[in-house]
Design a protein around this nucleic acid. Sequence first.
DNA 1: CGGTGCCTTGAGTGCGCTCAATTAAAGTGG
DNA 2: CCACTTTAATTGAGCGCACTCAAGGCACCG
Lengths: 247, 247
Amino acid sequence: MSNDKSTLAPFLRKLEVFAELKPAARAAILELPVRLRAVESSTFLLREGDEPTTCTILVSGYAFRQKRTGEGARQILSLHIPGEALDLQHLYLGVADHSIQMLSRGEVAIAQRKDLHALLDAHPTFARAMLRHVMVEASIAREWVLNIGRRDAKSRMAHVLCEFAVRVQSQGLTGAGGYELPITQEQMADVLGMTPVHVNRTLKALEALGLIVRDRRTINFPSWEKLRDAGDFNRRYLHMDEPVRAA
Amino acid sequence: MSNDKSTLAPFLRKLEVFAELKPAARAAILELPVRLRAVESSTFLLREGDEPTTCTILVSGYAFRQKRTGEGARQILSLHIPGEALDLQHLYLGVADHSIQMLSRGEVAIAQRKDLHALLDAHPTFARAMLRHVMVEASIAREWVLNIGRRDAKSRMAHVLCEFAVRVQSQGLTGAGGYELPITQEQMADVLGMTPVHVNRTLKALEALGLIVRDRRTINFPSWEKLRDAGDFNRRYLHMDEPVRAA
DNA sequence: CGGTGCCTTGAGTGCGCTCAATTAAAGTGG
DNA sequence: CCACTTTAATTGAGCGCACTCAAGGCACCG
């Protein structure tokens, strides 16, 4: 069990975007008993069909949820950045309906379900923050339905670039104006429901329009406003700007 | 306030798919103070940007969530059947990121947020069932991402027909083998991320393949297995078959 | 019985796909 | 540090699924 107080600092930061935590809750979260594990890129943190009894929190690196059709086509369902809890649904549901895999190498903190339940029961402000975490993740999934269902390739790509920019920045992982996209074009294709070839052409198209500048996997955007408009991006669905309200 | 014990019976039925409720919880749910309201088809129950202080439960009729792109294209994000709570996220989040509208005429029960919070605090088995309700809805949204992102028109359509069949049947609203699809082809297009014209052609194609038989909006499927296979449908993501476990 | 949605069908187009080859980058081991 | 392998990115050519535009048919309703 890790007792290093800094291990869960990203998690705390994430929660505090969503709700104010009482000092006692903050302290208790940092003392949640977890096992810290270094994981390679592509490591499965969860497989469809599993019945986990633990809850995984991403400490460093990036991860993604995925699901496959019977024909084997993959769709990436969400991207995860440090501080996010990956397994919350398994506090309440049994069998995993999707897989979770690391996008890059990184570290995860693994908590026992019973410890998390105890923490939730003991600290209402923590429970509230976790619920908002869950609700926001569901909101993002709905936005992806809209994005994939109703936006064309350029707009769809720009939208995901915007979302990632905002989320990464809110976790203090990068500044405004650009970031390293920790993802291959093939994976991006599975995020967007397109083919890798078309991802490549779409990135080039966005570059030709002056909306992004690329170097390897680093994406810079000279004008946030232009990229935002191209991606039809409105951060409301991320629910980061709502004053924390009393229960 | 309605005190008719049968008003919230569909809600109770829905919850009991997900978790066993203690008798006291069951009784308390049926006595939740709600305002029953008859609503016409197309009535908005929630608009993007609203900050609701109530929680709406669908008692009869069908409803759907929707969101529009800046260009005005609509995507339907979920379909709702009687017994489902439509507003759960607003117990924890402020501003609505999507709209909810009636698909048919029907009735809704409107509860005050504070009453629901009190009920959640008082009855852990209710709280557990509600959380599973929320988690399953999120799981369905993820399946829709996969469906829209990675399945072709015929398979995508068949998948939605299967999902709706299972959900409607679990609420006891119809038998196996068919149901009335309470939706225009234009709305179906917005469910699937396609055009109305292509929905029409896809329905005809499924019919030509012998997978469905149509009469107006009534869909019958001679062989559940065939439709299920065509739609690459696996009900795991609906989490209806999991034994209720202790906390 | 004439409106008014909704469904249906035809014809033509195009966005994104497939197949395939090349180039560039990132590992890997000697 | 360089040859070799592997993985990722890029580009070209051709195709097809789903789209657009447009007209006609059908059912329900006042």
